[in-house]
């Protein structure tokens, strides 16, 4: 039996000549589908031409470009409307790099195209006419989804650098967003949070999560931080939401991205939004009552214990050791 080629669309979002949400390697994607694919690329955004000129396109296939330099493209509704303007063509799979914006666009499109949508996919492969998707869910589990195509996914790929060479592609350039929906949802302002260099400069971060329990207990983390040179405290989002620490201390997808020599976490479960901001730390210690908290999947040292039992004992131990070292 002759096997059908799959129609796969990959969507890239470009803002002012820069890829917005990471890159996807389309050779890798072809391989994942065992080369049984017709790949189509779609670049949506502002100054896309500038991006394409700088990346040397080595792609033989359809490349569509929807370019409107007058729009900010941090807008899932506008992005989704523009992707859907490509028309009724039936795609078996649509792939976007994973991001908050792209998740929104993907799910909206799925509803409009009568497709399924799966987000934050860690890995996928194609086997026996079935797409097998893997993603992380609550409590450190992996969910495996077997799906019969006709779906949109957002992929947590790890490529941030350009990894495609697009020389020789045929473009189908659509200048100016074809969709007149800006009045329905327009961007009024885009602000970048003020940078707080303390977090990126520190060699050691003592990061507190909801497990720290209350404002008063932050002191314990500060006491631990004092034992390390060039250290600072940091926090997960709920800690900042509870006003136990200001937002400038927040690590994660909507906070700061850090990569200290030591990331010492106290009562942090390790949601994907938190991990994406600290997974490149050189050494990770996790103190958590639950040894299977998701952060254990990336931590180097796991202490399964109550913060309020382990940390006071550890502080005491370090002080003792320092005293011995000094007295030598």
């Amino acid at each position: 039996m002759r096997q059908k080629f799959l129609e796969v669309l990959i969507v890239f979002n470009v803002e002012d000549g820069q890829l917005l949400h990471g890159n996807l390697n389309f050779y890798e994607i072809k391989n994942k589908f065992k080369n049984r694919v017709n790949l189509q690329l779609l670049f949506c955004g502002s100054n896309v031409s500038k991006y394409l000129d700088n990346s040397h396109l080595d792609f033989y296939g359809d490349v569509s470009v929807i370019e409107d330099d007058s729009l900010p493209w941090n807008n899932p509704y506008i992005l989704a409307q523009n992707i859907s303007s490509l028309g009724e063509k039936n795609f078996d799979v649509v792939i976007l790099p994973h991001s908050i914006t792209n998740c929104g666009a993907a799910a909206f499109l799925a509803a409009q195209f009568s497709m399924e949508c799966f987000t934050a996919i860690n890995d996928f492969y194609f086997d026996d006419e079935t797409l097998v998707l893997e993603r992380e869910v609550f409590g450190g589990f992996t969910e495996r989804i077997l799906c019969k195509l006709n779906c949109i996914i957002t992929w947590l790929c790890s490529h941030s650098e350009p990894c495609n060479n697009l020389n020789g592609a045929k473009y189908n350039l659509i200048k100016k967003s074809p969709v007149e929906c800006e009045d329905l949802c327009s961007v009024i302002s885009v602000e970048k949070a003020q940078s707080f260099s303390r977090l990126s400069e520190a060699n050691v971060l003592i990061a507190v999560g909801r497990g720290i329990g209350s404002l008063e207990n932050i002191e314990l983390a500060q006491e631990l931080a004092l034992l390390f040179d060039n250290s600072s405290i940091a926090a997960s989002r709920p800690v900042c939401d509870n006003r136990w620490l200001p937002y400038k201390y927040q690590v994660g997808v909507t906070g700061k991205t850090v990569s200290p020599a030591l990331y010492f976490s106290l009562g942090i479960s390790g949601s994907s939004q938190h991990l994406s901001g600290m997974k490149n730390s050189r050494c990770i210690v996790s103190v958590n009552k639950d040894r299977y908290a998701a952060i254990s999947s990336i931590a180097d040292y796991i202490v399964e214990d109550d913060i309020f039992v382990f940390i006071p004992a550890f502080i005491h131990k370090v002080k003792e050791k320092k005293k011995i070292l000094r007295s030598r």
């Binding site: 329905l184 949802c185 885009v190």
Partner: peptide, 11 residues
């Protein structure tokens, strides 16, 4: 949204 970017929309 990502990277400490705050966007205000009028919908």
């Amino acid at each position: 949204l990502e990277d400490g970017i705050a966007v205000t929309y009028s919908i």
